[in-house]
């Protein structure tokens, strides 16, 4: 794996992308013992509006803390996809919600599409776990952090009451990743 990996989680406010970024950074930094930085860009809205959470993971000290060219891009809205796909590395991968991102960009990258939010609603009765399923998919596809680490990080960051459902959502994400990989 590359020395420095840059991940961009994009969508709109309220989709839990900032929390997802924090969990990913915590998995890498605290539980996998690497270096990790999470940062974000957001508008004045608490809900809606563009939202972007960035995570940089490295085996060495991280100087520049932001994404220069993303290796992994998660897009949970069409607007976010259109905006951030331009900044995706040539050999980077795109994970997008197939219901929310209907116009899939015409790029040569590895693209993984799945109706994440819809599945969250169907399986768990809430779209709130869309972010955690997405993390499961990303980790399942890329091993950017270990599965053990992301499990611990999810449990540490989500409220006690929501622990079980989030753990299940994460595991579901791993399974989805397996399917997506075999389909390729």
């Amino acid at each position: 794996m590359k020395e420095r990996i840059e991940i961009c989680l994009s969508g709109s406010g309220g989709q839990g992308l900032i929390l997802a970024g924090i969990i990913l950074a915590e998995a890498a930094g605290i539980y996998d013992g690497k270096e990790a930085v999470q940062s974000q860009s957001y508008g004045p809205e608490a809900r809606g509006g563009a939202s972007r959470s960035e995570v940089v993971i490295s085996n060495n000290t991280i100087d520049y803390p932001k994404v220069i060219k993303s290796d992994i891009l998660l897009a949970l809205t069409q607007t976010a996809c259109d905006k951030y796909v331009k900044n995706l590395n040539k050999d980077g991968i795109l994970v997008a919600d197939s219901t929310l991102v209907t116009e899939v960009p015409n790029i040569s990258n590895k693209i993984y599409l799945f109706p994440i939010a819809e599945t969250a609603q169907k399986k768990f009765g809430t779209k709130l776990v869309t972010n955690i399923i997405s993390l499961g998919i990303i980790v399942g596809l890329t091993e950017v952090v270990s599965q053990e680490a992301i499990k611990k990080a999810v449990c540490f960051r989500v409220p006690v009451k929501a622990k079980e459902v989030n753990e299940k959502a994460l595991l579901l994400g791993f399974d989805i990743a397996k399917d997506l990989k075999t389909k390729k």
């Binding site: 924090i22 950074a25 930094g29 605290i30 270096e35 990790a36 930085v37 999470q38 940062s39």
Partner: peptide, 9 residues
């Protein structure tokens, strides 16, 4: 704002 909101080890 960058370092105020950034999370790091």
């Amino acid at each position: 704002e960058v370092i105020a909101h950034m999370r790091e080890k």
